[in-house]
Design a protein around this nucleic acid. Structure first.
Length: 197
DNA sequence: CCCTGATTCGC
DNA sequence: GCGAATCAGG
């Protein structure tokens, strides 16, 4: 595949829209994200200047004044030092509360058996909760089968209803949930204690 | 581990 | 000009 006018145009469009290089590459097909990034640079729009007003104070004193000896090929190649790897220490402890109880559930009585006692909202930080309800609008609303190792597995709604789905947003590394849901699922023990009412 | 963009350099 | 390999960061 070569960079035809239309392909370049699509590239420019998507790039200025904030699409990632990999997304653009997928859309275009026949190219890798590296190719896209390379092209972006050659086109000179690496600064995402597509629509960004940009900060006036763009102090870019980069003289770029490389002495004639530009061919300089330093590459100090620092030695990969060992990683002491801090220490587990104060690791937040997973809270085993049942997620459910989305704001949408309200007072509707589940069609089936009454749900088990739900600790729900009262023990979760308001901030985290707010964050959740906000991103839930953007949720992918996946079905059980659509979940992958990389999609948030946070359930939303009532399983006894049609109004039930899984968040599906990109998960936080290692975790089973997206950032927002990790926020309500995992809490430092202290925070949990303090909230006790 | 997954992803992001940035850079280098042989082709 | 092109883009894989690599780098650097989240």
């Amino acid at each position: 595949m070569s960079w035809t006018d239309e392909r370049v145009e699509l590239l420019k469009k998507m790039w200025s829209e904030g699409q990632s290089a990999s997304q653009i590459a997928k859309e275009l097909g026949g190219v890798t994200r590296n190719a896209v990034i390379g092209k972006v640079h050659r086109l000179g729009l690496s600064n995402r200047a597509g629509a960004a007003p940009a900060a006036a104070a763009e102090a870019k004193p980069e003289p770029k004044a490389q002495p004639a000896a530009a061919k300089a090929k330093p590459q100090p190649k620092p030695a990969p030092a060992n990683k002491p790897e801090p220490a587990p220490e104060a690791k937040p402890q997973p809270v085993a509360t049942t997620p459910a109880i989305s704001p949408a559930r309200k007072q509707i009585i589940p069609a089936g058996q009454p749900l088990p006692p739900q600790p729900s909202t009262n023990e979760i930080s308001p901030e985290a909760l707010a964050k959740v309800s906000e991103i839930e609008k953007k949720a992918k609303k996946l079905t059980l089968m659509e979940l992958t190792e990389r999609t948030c597995k946070w359930p939303v709604g009532d399983p006894a209803t049609e109004d039930f789905w899984f968040c599906g947003l990109p998960v936080q590394q290692g975790k089973p949930y997206c950032e927002a849901h990790v926020g309500v699922a995992f809490q430092p023990m202290s925070a949990r204690r303090d909230r006790r009412r």
